[in-house]
Every structure is written in structure tokens, then in C-alpha cells.
Amino acid sequence: MSRVPSPPPPAEMSSGPVAESWCYTQIKVVKFSYMWTINNFSFCREEMGEVIKSSTFSSGANDKLKWCLRVNPKGLDEESKDYLSLYLLLVSCPKSEVRAKFKFSILNAKGEETKAMESQRAYRFVQGKDWGFKKFIRRDFLLDEANGLLPDDKLTLFCEVSVVQDSVNISGQNTMNMVKVPECRLADELGGLWENSRFTDCCLCVAGQEFQAHKAILAARSPVFSAMFEHEMEESKKNRVEINDVEPEVFKEMMCFIYTGKAPNLDKMADDLLAAADKYALERLKVMCEDALCSNLSVENAAEILILADLHSADQLKTQAVDFINYHASDVLETSGWKSMVVSHPHLVAEAYRSLASAQCPFLGPPRKRLKQS
């Protein structure tokens, strides 16, 4: 649940008159999402009104509101027999009622949201009550392989729920002597030191190019640089560091992050930047690179990204790559990247197969709970 924001200063709310007192009302909304995959969808019983329910879910471990999704594969009634019906059901509720908006969509073979439908307002739910769409999607369109909505005969539904909580009022009075504290510009100011090479005390040599930097900042941000300058190493004695395995453009992006906490060109060089972040123990930059690479996972590059993640101990990226390969196994196994990995990294192939087997055979063990970014 997000923290209630402070109200904007009255002088910034309007260029008009300023009242002596004010009130700011925040209506709290808890948002969460749920993904439900139905394997072997074409084998569902086709009687009209037949119901399939998901397991229950909530916004978190401490949330007492429990929900589930309900599907009628062949419609709810005679009117909707040519459609799939989809509903959000409130299973248990400690209150007399709650209000919530919802959005349903289908994830296609690429994991993209399609055929989205959402409620136009927050509906009133009581325990045992459901709301949804009797005519969510035509069955003939859903079952047509050309539309790519049932890869490997799996129907994957994605649901986003927004639950309306209580409202909170914050009130106060205006004073004539309003003090406005300026925003912190530390990142910009440190970035200026790097860009202008002011007050530098060490030189970093990268592929024949020299960059002036500040030992204190490098040591504070990177345990690797800290070790170089702290001990009686040649880098500490000469205040000069030779860097041979990072390209200059990648190095500059890494230094921008060290000084400012930002990497504006990360998406263009996420793979190389991940390697640099791993070498210099820049954990936050490493996770930022993992996130960017996750966003660009595809059938063509899944094997290469899995190898990269394994090489640099990028655990979150590795998990996402394995899950992606499992979901698109029939396509990924035909790529040149996968065939190369079979020869060069057989242990990763074995890991992917083990994960695929456990996903398809849940009876082999208890269900695993899916539970950071600093």
C-alpha cells in the first residue's frame, strides 16, 4: 500500500486566492494483479454453464480479502454459449462490502496482453458476489490457432484489481511565511564533478583513453575500487588504474551511474553493462540491467540471455529466462542460440529441462510459493 502523499503547497495549487485553511483528501486504492494459466484448455468440458475456478489470491499475505477468477468455457447461458465468460469473485471478506475495479486480458504466445476488457467503474462486491463479462471473447476466435491465444493449448488470463480503501483527510492552515525547501541536487552536482573533471585525484585508463576521477567517490560506490585504493596496490601508489576489459562507451555509462545513480543509455548496452556491474560489484546497476534484459526477452535471444545471466550470477534474470524458455519451449528449441547452448553450456540445458519437467508435473513435489530491489 502506498504512503499517503503530503498535500501540495497551496501557493502551487492555483494562481488564484489562497485560503486560510485547507483539506486534502486521499482515497486510498490498493492495486494488484494475478495470472492464471489453464493447461490443455481444449479438453475443458463443453457443457453450457460449466465452471472452472482459479485458486484464491489477494494483494498480499496480510490481506484478508480473498478473490478468485471464474471461467465458463462455453458461456454462462444460452445467450453467451458462443463466448467464454469471465468473472472476478470475492471469496471471503471481513467487511460487509468492498468496491473494486478490474481489468481482464489474455496473454498471447509472446506474453503480450490482448483482448483487454475492464470495468468502467468500481463495482460493489459482497462475499460470494462476482462481476465480469458474460461475453468476454468469442470461442471461435479464441480457438483459432492463427490468433495465437492458446500457445501449446494453454489459456493464460491476466487480471488487474484495484480495491478502494478508506479515504484519509489531511488538513492544515496557511501561513504568510511559507518556506520552500529546494530539491536535493546531489546527483546532478556529483555528475558535474565527473563531467568537468574537477578536483580529480586519479586516472582511469580504458582502451587508450584516459578519464579523470575521484578516488573517494569510486571507493564509496564500488567495493572493488575501494579494495584497489585501500591496500598497497599499484593503483593506490600511482593513482592510476588500467581497465582492459570494458569498452570506453560502456565504461562511461558505468561511471555515470557511479556518480549519479542513473544510467540513461542502459537499454542500448544492458548486456555489456551487466558484465561491468558484476565485475565492479555495483549491485543496483546489475539489477537494473537484469530488468532491462528481462523486458527484451524473446524467442530468438532467450538462450543467449540465459548464458549471460549464468555467467554473471544474475539470479533474477536467470529465473526469468528459464521461465520464458519453459513457456515458449517449442519455439526456443528451434533457435540457433539454443542449439549452440546445447554444445557450449549443457548444464544450462539440463537446468531448463528440470524446470520444465517440474512445471508440467506438479505432483512430483509440493507447490512452490512464489514470493528486491534495493
Rank of each mutant, 00 (worst) to 15 (best):
374 S>Q: 14
253 E>V: 07
290 E>W: 12
350 A>K: 02
203 C>S: 13
226 S>F: 13
275 A>E: 02
80 S>M: 11
144 D>Y: 09
74 K>Q: 01
351 E>P: 11
34 Y>V: 12
260 T>Q: 14
48 M>N: 10
217 I>G: 00
189 E>S: 13
213 A>M: 11
186 L>R: 02
362 P>Y: 15
164 V>R: 11
110 K>I: 12
280 Y>I: 01
222 S>R: 00
283 E>A: 07
335 T>D: 08
166 D>M: 07
339 K>Q: 07
185 R>Q: 06
223 P>S: 14
206 V>M: 10
98 V>M: 13
245 D>V: 05
55 S>D: 10
290 E>V: 11
298 S>T: 14
100 A>Q: 01
153 D>G: 07
248 P>K: 11
66 K>T: 02
234 E>S: 15
140 D>K: 11
40 N>Y: 01
160 E>P: 00
332 V>E: 00
257 F>P: 00
181 V>G: 10
337 G>T: 03
190 L>D: 05
97 E>L: 09
305 I>R: 09
123 Y>W: 13
61 A>G: 12
184 C>M: 05
251 F>Q: 00
80 S>D: 06
43 F>E: 13
64 K>E: 05
100 A>C: 15
60 G>W: 04
319 T>W: 06
82 D>Y: 05
56 T>R: 01
363 F>T: 14
176 M>I: 07
370 R>M: 15
200 T>M: 10
65 L>Y: 13
210 E>Q: 13
187 A>G: 02
206 V>G: 15
368 R>D: 08
255 M>R: 04
238 K>Q: 04
93 C>M: 13
106 I>H: 14
32 F>Y: 06
333 L>G: 07
154 K>G: 15
11 A>V: 06
168 V>P: 10
175 T>V: 01
301 N>L: 08
331 D>C: 12
372 K>T: 04
10 P>H: 04
310 D>Q: 03
22 W>K: 08
128 G>I: 13
135 K>T: 11
168 V>F: 11
180 K>A: 05
241 V>D: 05
72 N>A: 03
67 W>P: 00
74 K>W: 11
25 T>R: 09
325 I>Q: 01
326 N>A: 08
53 K>C: 02
348 L>V: 04
112 E>F: 03
307 I>V: 06
285 L>F: 04
219 A>C: 10
270 A>H: 03
94 P>R: 12
128 G>Q: 14
228 M>H: 11
129 K>S: 05
223 P>M: 08
367 P>H: 08
11 A>M: 11
141 F>M: 13
125 F>A: 00
136 F>N: 03
299 V>G: 03
102 F>Y: 01
352 A>C: 12
338 W>R: 00
100 A>R: 00
259 Y>P: 01
265 N>T: 05
45 R>L: 07
43 F>Q: 14
192 G>D: 08
130 D>S: 09
28 K>I: 06
225 F>V: 14
89 L>T: 07
345 H>G: 01
261 G>F: 12
332 V>D: 00
370 R>C: 09
24 Y>K: 09
3 R>I: 02
132 G>N: 00
268 K>I: 10
322 V>K: 11
3 R>T: 05
325 I>N: 00
242 E>G: 02
251 F>P: 00
71 V>K: 14
3 R>P: 09
53 K>N: 07
77 D>F: 12
316 Q>S: 03
31 K>V: 09
119 S>G: 14
87 Y>M: 09
299 V>E: 02
355 S>L: 05
166 D>W: 14
119 S>K: 00
200 T>C: 14
122 A>F: 08
135 K>F: 12
144 D>N: 08
99 R>Y: 14
103 K>W: 06
149 L>T: 04
304 E>A: 03
182 P>R: 01
196 N>Q: 02
161 V>G: 05
361 C>K: 11
211 F>I: 01
320 Q>F: 05
354 R>W: 08
306 L>R: 01
85 S>Y: 12
181 V>K: 09
100 A>N: 14
72 N>D: 08
166 D>V: 03
171 S>Y: 05
365 G>L: 15
30 V>P: 11
146 A>N: 06
51 V>E: 06
90 L>D: 03
39 N>I: 04
26 Q>M: 01
228 M>V: 11
176 M>C: 03
32 F>Q: 08
252 K>E: 02
299 V>T: 12
161 V>K: 00
175 T>I: 05
63 D>Q: 01
289 C>Q: 00
158 F>C: 06
24 Y>S: 06
331 D>L: 10
152 D>R: 10
290 E>F: 14
130 D>N: 01
13 M>S: 03
287 V>G: 04
70 R>Q: 10
216 A>V: 02
272 D>H: 01
280 Y>C: 01
187 A>L: 04
131 W>Q: 04
48 M>T: 02
196 N>C: 15
280 Y>H: 02
249 E>Q: 01
299 V>K: 09
39 N>S: 03
120 Q>K: 12
36 W>T: 02
219 A>K: 15
11 A>N: 13
3 R>V: 13
92 S>D: 14
33 S>Q: 04
331 D>Q: 09
101 K>W: 15
334 E>A: 12
292 A>G: 03
138 R>Y: 01
355 S>I: 13
308 L>F: 11
67 W>M: 02
3 R>Q: 11
183 E>Q: 06
254 M>A: 10
236 S>C: 02
43 F>Y: 07
223 P>C: 15
211 F>L: 10
200 T>Y: 15
129 K>N: 10
355 S>C: 05
364 L>H: 13
18 V>C: 10
119 S>P: 02
290 E>L: 09
335 T>Y: 01
116 A>S: 12
296 N>K: 06
348 L>N: 03
65 L>E: 06
361 C>L: 14
359 A>E: 06
372 K>N: 05
246 V>G: 04
34 Y>R: 12
145 E>P: 11
357 A>R: 10
365 G>S: 15
59 S>P: 03
369 K>W: 03
49 G>N: 06
261 G>Y: 12
108 N>W: 11
213 A>N: 14
287 V>S: 02
332 V>P: 00
8 P>S: 08
165 Q>C: 08
22 W>R: 06
334 E>K: 08
92 S>G: 01
16 G>H: 11
144 D>T: 09
5 P>E: 03
364 L>D: 14
17 P>D: 12
256 C>R: 01
126 V>I: 08
161 V>Q: 14
116 A>G: 11
192 G>V: 05
314 A>E: 03
131 W>N: 01
1 M>W: 00
150 L>H: 02
199 F>R: 14
250 V>S: 07
275 A>C: 06
344 S>N: 08
